[in-house]
Simulated assay, not measured.
Amino acid sequence: MTAPRNRNNLTIIGGGFAGLTAAIVAAEAGAQVTVHESHDALGGRARTAEGTYRTNEGPHALYNGGPHWAWLKQRDLIGPLAQLPPIEGTRLRLHHQGRLRRTPPLAMLKLLRRKPEQAPVDEDFMTWATREAGEEGARAAAHYMAVATFHHDPGSLSARFLQERLRRATKLPPEAHYPRGGWATIIDRMASFAWNLGVRVETLSRIDDVGALSTATEGPVIIATSLPAARQLLKDDSLHWDSARTTLIDLALTSRRGDLFVVSDLDRTGWIERFTTQDHTLAPAGQELIQAQIPLSPDESKTDGAARADHLLDLGFPGWRERLMWRRDAVSNGRTGALDLPGTTWRDRPAIDRGDGVYLAGDQVAAPGLLSEVSFNSALKAVTLALTSTRLDLKSA
Rank of each mutant, 00 (worst) to 15 (best):
residue 251 L to T: 03
residue 283 A to H: 09
residue 372 S to Q: 09
residue 259 D to P: 01
residue 336 T to D: 13
residue 365 V to W: 03
residue 332 S to D: 05
residue 342 P to I: 11
residue 358 V to R: 13
residue 302 K to R: 15
residue 253 L to I: 09
residue 320 W to C: 07
residue 346 W to A: 12
residue 234 L to N: 07
residue 325 M to L: 15
residue 293 Q to L: 14
residue 337 G to H: 06
residue 328 R to L: 12
residue 319 G to Q: 05
residue 317 F to Y: 15
residue 237 D to V: 03
residue 299 D to K: 02
residue 324 L to E: 14
residue 375 S to K: 02
residue 284 P to S: 10
residue 351 A to N: 10
residue 348 D to N: 14
residue 277 T to A: 14
residue 277 T to R: 15
residue 282 L to A: 12
residue 275 F to H: 15
residue 243 S to C: 11
residue 364 Q to M: 15
residue 258 G to T: 09
residue 276 T to H: 08
residue 267 D to T: 04
residue 369 G to T: 08
residue 352 I to S: 05
residue 370 L to Y: 08
residue 312 L to W: 08
residue 260 L to C: 11
residue 354 R to L: 08
residue 350 P to N: 06
residue 376 F to S: 06
residue 345 T to R: 03
residue 310 D to K: 05
residue 360 L to W: 04
residue 338 A to V: 12
residue 323 R to W: 05
residue 351 A to F: 03
residue 280 H to F: 03
residue 268 R to V: 00
residue 373 E to L: 04
residue 237 D to H: 09
residue 315 L to A: 14
residue 278 Q to G: 05
residue 371 L to E: 07
residue 380 L to P: 00
residue 350 P to Y: 09
residue 354 R to T: 07
residue 330 A to W: 14
residue 258 G to W: 10
residue 304 D to C: 02
residue 285 A to C: 05
residue 245 R to P: 01
residue 290 I to C: 06
residue 291 Q to M: 12
residue 297 S to Q: 12
residue 333 N to S: 14
residue 240 H to I: 13
residue 304 D to A: 09
residue 378 S to E: 11
residue 249 I to S: 01
residue 277 T to P: 00
residue 336 T to L: 15
residue 303 T to S: 14
residue 317 F to E: 08
residue 366 A to D: 09
residue 327 R to A: 09
residue 275 F to V: 13
residue 268 R to P: 00
residue 372 S to W: 04
residue 369 G to I: 08
residue 356 D to V: 04
residue 370 L to K: 02
residue 236 D to C: 04
residue 335 R to S: 13
residue 245 R to E: 03
residue 329 D to E: 13
residue 333 N to Q: 13
residue 378 S to D: 07
residue 372 S to L: 12
residue 379 A to V: 12
residue 266 L to Q: 03
residue 373 E to D: 14
residue 242 D to S: 08
residue 301 S to C: 04
residue 373 E to G: 03
residue 269 T to A: 06
residue 358 V to G: 01
residue 374 V to P: 00
residue 265 D to A: 01
residue 278 Q to W: 10
residue 298 P to Y: 10
residue 337 G to N: 09
residue 251 L to Q: 02
residue 262 V to N: 11
residue 320 W to P: 02
residue 373 E to M: 06
residue 299 D to Y: 00
residue 357 G to W: 04
residue 262 V to L: 11
residue 243 S to P: 02
residue 287 Q to C: 10
residue 309 A to W: 11
residue 249 I to H: 02
residue 364 Q to E: 14
residue 365 V to M: 11
residue 377 N to S: 13
residue 324 L to Y: 05
residue 320 W to N: 07
residue 321 R to C: 06
residue 236 D to W: 05
residue 271 W to H: 14
residue 238 S to T: 15
residue 370 L to H: 13
residue 322 E to R: 12
residue 259 D to I: 07
residue 283 A to E: 11
residue 363 D to P: 02
residue 352 I to L: 09
residue 270 G to A: 08
residue 291 Q to P: 00
residue 272 I to C: 11
residue 297 S to F: 03
residue 299 D to W: 00
residue 305 G to P: 04
residue 273 E to P: 00
residue 341 L to Q: 15
residue 280 H to L: 12
residue 302 K to E: 15
residue 320 W to E: 10
residue 376 F to N: 05
residue 311 H to D: 02
residue 299 D to V: 08
residue 307 A to P: 01
residue 272 I to M: 03
